[in-house]
Design a protein around this nucleic acid. Structure first.
Lengths: 192, 192
DNA sequence: TCGATTGTCTAGCACTGCTAGGATCTCCTC
DNA sequence: GAGGAGATCCTAGCAGTGCTAGACAATCGA
């Protein structure tokens, strides 16, 4: 048994190495630079090894996305619990979300812009994704306002944040006004 | 002179054909299916011909984006002028924007998701893009509210719409609540 | 009608994701 | 310890990508 356990552990280690390396490479040079060859070279294995862990590149992106979702959930909850009162909480949440997107652009892309083959907004959505949404909902539900479904409000607020994050990073919005746009969004959207 | 003029006309025709074909192919099968080979085959020329019109695939995407921006501006203005009063105007604007994104997903991607090599939010931004933003601003400026810069408000509102458009189409948001999210956005964000 | 220019195509480069098949290495059994 | 079975891994190759060099043919002006 012990031999098999060691093998399984080593396999799991290597899988983590693949995901971490893919993420690192993507953050350094963008997802286009994450080719199976380059990734294989970095982990010091041949290409086919990647396919013994993942069905293909898409699944590797998906794995990075799940990792990112888990981290984002932690960040969001930490920011929310450190803030006093609904208003401060929503502001902190928005800032933290946008900050995460800015500091981890490749991970953010894996989560929301690229196709990682993950299910969304359905029954079999992976747990980390549901949990990241739940983290948003926990703080946003209380400012949804009367007669507005908390889930629907969270979806809308999230979409707005997502729009700000992607358009800003793509150079579609002037970066210097980012903070003012965030404030406007919080002031207007949240029922305070 | 006449011969040269005819040639220039034919060249311009062929360029339009390339852009129209790329757009058609992208709408039918997605941008991934728009390969230089397939595109060349459809216009019944060899690959290198494409490169005598455009620097590369990116520029073709850019050309489709500009065409789309022009059409979107027309749609937005038509919707705005057909509505009575600020509230109806903003609602019509939001619906028209999201409708455009839903009916022309490939064009929308070319405009805002893919890299078409176009400059944004700067001096030398192509005219159609500036004009599409202007069309938004014309209707949104009046509901920015006191002390809020119309441009900043338009950017924020646009980002929210963009987030709804992309997340909905990517299956990240349940499509059946799209209309309710739009209403919520308009109700809260616009100062009416 | 000739020569130059313009226009177009064939063929090929270096790269991509992915996989078949063979080699090697490890482990369990005798 | 030795042999065979099985897991593990790599080499080599497929079909596809964007893009381009260089040869060829059509067209134009003199």
């Amino acid at each position: 048994m012990s031999v098999q356990e060691r093998k399984e552990r080593e396999r799991a280690d290597r899988e983590r190495l693949i995901v971490a390396t893919a993420r690192e490479l993507a953050e350094q040079q963008g997802w286009d630079a994450v080719t199976t060859r380059r990734l294989a070279e970095r982990i010091e294995y041949s290409q086919p090894v990647l396919y013994s862990h993942f069905r293909g590149k898409r699944e590797i992106i998906g794995a990075v996305a799940l990792q990112g979702a888990a981290e984002m959930a932690v960040s969001l909850r930490a920011a929310a619990s450190a803030a006093d009162g609904p208003r401060a909480r929503v502001t902190a949440l928005a800032r933290t979300y946008l900050d995460f997107a800015e500091r981890n652009p490749a991970v953010y892309d894996a989560m929301f812009r690229l196709d990682g083959g993950l299910a969304f907004a359905v029954e079999d959505t992976p747990e980390p994704l549901k949990d990241a949404f739940a983290a948003l909902l926990e703080s946003l539900g209380e400012v949804a306002g009367d007669g507005v479904h908390p889930g629907l409000f969270t979806e809308t607020f999230w979409a707005a944040l997502h729009g700000l994050a992607t358009l800003t990073r793509a150079g579609r919005l002037p970066p210097e006004d980012a903070e003012r746009r965030t404030e406007l969004l919080v002031d207007r959207l949240a029922a305070l």
